[in-house]
Simulated assay, not measured.
Amino acid sequence: MINTAFQIDYLKPDDAESLSLLMRSNREIFERFFPNTLQQNLSVLDSRNYIEKKDEEIAKKEEFTFAIRENNDQSILGLVILKNIDHNIGEGELAYCLDSDYHGKGITSSCIKQAIDFAFDKIDLKTLKIIAHKTNRGSIGVALKCGFQWKKTIQKAYRPPNEDFLDMELYELYYEG
């Protein structure tokens, strides 16, 4: 069942404190697959700068970063990022992270479905990708629950900080409207 008590929306300037707190309190889980985002949000000032940069990317339709929020609360529980957008071929990639206290509740799946609707309906993408490591069962579960299908293993696709390159699993979803 998809949890509808959560929504995605753009980051706002007054989100800086909540965003920085999310990143710092989940440092151990974010540093492997979200190291750049983590490094850009280690202080409230860093997060203010990050949010300004994300606003510029949205204005240029280069990348869309959304906050995951509970409907009745404005604190940030996670992020959904629509990135690596190629408007010429109608393709983009979804990446996401969530506060560890909220794992396993259907929140990410609900928010990814909202991001899918946005990508297909608002910016006319035709293909979405999710790339996950085979050990990240939660991320793979989100991809499958949201209708993505496994396509292939990408050899040496990602290098986490201070580790060797990892093979990653590619999942894709195609617009059917």
Score class of each variant (00 low, 15 high):
residue 3 N to D: 09
residue 4 T to P: 05
residue 5 A to G: 14
residue 6 F to C: 09
residue 6 F to P: 02
residue 7 Q to T: 14
residue 7 Q to R: 13
residue 9 D to H: 01
residue 10 Y to Q: 01
residue 13 P to E: 02
residue 13 P to A: 00
residue 15 D to K: 03
residue 19 L to F: 12
residue 20 S to H: 11
residue 20 S to D: 07
residue 21 L to S: 01
residue 22 L to N: 00
residue 23 M to D: 06
residue 25 S to G: 00
residue 26 N to R: 11
residue 26 N to T: 13
residue 29 I to V: 15
residue 30 F to M: 15
residue 30 F to A: 08
residue 34 F to E: 14
residue 34 F to Q: 14
residue 36 N to G: 08
residue 36 N to Y: 10
residue 38 L to I: 12
residue 38 L to T: 12
residue 39 Q to I: 10
residue 41 N to T: 14
residue 41 N to V: 08
residue 44 V to N: 05
residue 47 S to K: 15
residue 47 S to E: 10
residue 47 S to W: 08
residue 49 N to D: 12
residue 49 N to E: 15
residue 50 Y to Q: 10
residue 51 I to G: 12
residue 52 E to T: 12
residue 53 K to G: 12
residue 53 K to Q: 08
residue 56 E to I: 09
residue 56 E to R: 11
residue 57 E to T: 07
residue 57 E to V: 01
residue 59 A to N: 02
residue 59 A to H: 03
residue 61 K to G: 00
residue 61 K to M: 11
residue 63 E to D: 01
residue 63 E to M: 00
residue 64 F to S: 03
residue 67 A to L: 02
residue 70 E to F: 10
residue 70 E to T: 02
residue 70 E to A: 13
residue 72 N to K: 02
residue 75 S to K: 02
residue 76 I to M: 11
residue 78 G to S: 06
residue 80 V to P: 05
residue 80 V to A: 06
residue 81 I to K: 14
residue 82 L to P: 10
residue 87 H to A: 11
residue 88 N to M: 02
residue 89 I to R: 07
residue 89 I to F: 08
residue 91 E to F: 02
residue 92 G to L: 04
residue 93 E to N: 08
residue 93 E to D: 02
residue 94 L to V: 11
residue 97 C to P: 00
residue 105 K to C: 02
residue 106 G to A: 05
residue 106 G to M: 07
residue 107 I to Q: 11
residue 109 S to M: 03
residue 110 S to L: 07
residue 111 C to T: 12
residue 114 Q to A: 05
residue 116 I to Q: 13
residue 116 I to C: 11
residue 117 D to I: 04
residue 119 A to D: 04
residue 119 A to N: 04
residue 119 A to L: 11
residue 120 F to T: 05
residue 120 F to W: 01
residue 121 D to T: 13
residue 122 K to E: 05
residue 123 I to G: 04
residue 124 D to N: 15
residue 124 D to L: 10
residue 124 D to F: 13
residue 127 T to L: 06
residue 129 K to Y: 07
residue 130 I to N: 05
residue 130 I to Q: 08
residue 131 I to V: 15
residue 132 A to D: 04
residue 132 A to W: 03
residue 133 H to L: 03
residue 134 K to S: 15
residue 134 K to L: 06
residue 135 T to M: 10
residue 137 R to A: 09
residue 137 R to E: 13
residue 140 I to F: 01
residue 144 L to M: 03
residue 147 G to I: 14
residue 149 Q to A: 13
residue 151 K to C: 10
residue 151 K to Q: 13
residue 152 K to S: 15
residue 152 K to D: 03
residue 153 T to A: 02
residue 153 T to D: 06
residue 153 T to V: 14
residue 154 I to D: 03
residue 155 Q to S: 14
residue 156 K to P: 01
residue 157 A to L: 00
residue 163 E to G: 04
residue 164 D to H: 12
residue 164 D to C: 04
residue 167 D to F: 04
residue 168 M to L: 12
residue 168 M to W: 01
residue 168 M to E: 08
residue 169 E to T: 04
residue 170 L to T: 06
residue 171 Y to S: 02
residue 172 E to P: 05
residue 172 E to C: 09
residue 175 Y to N: 14
residue 177 G to T: 05
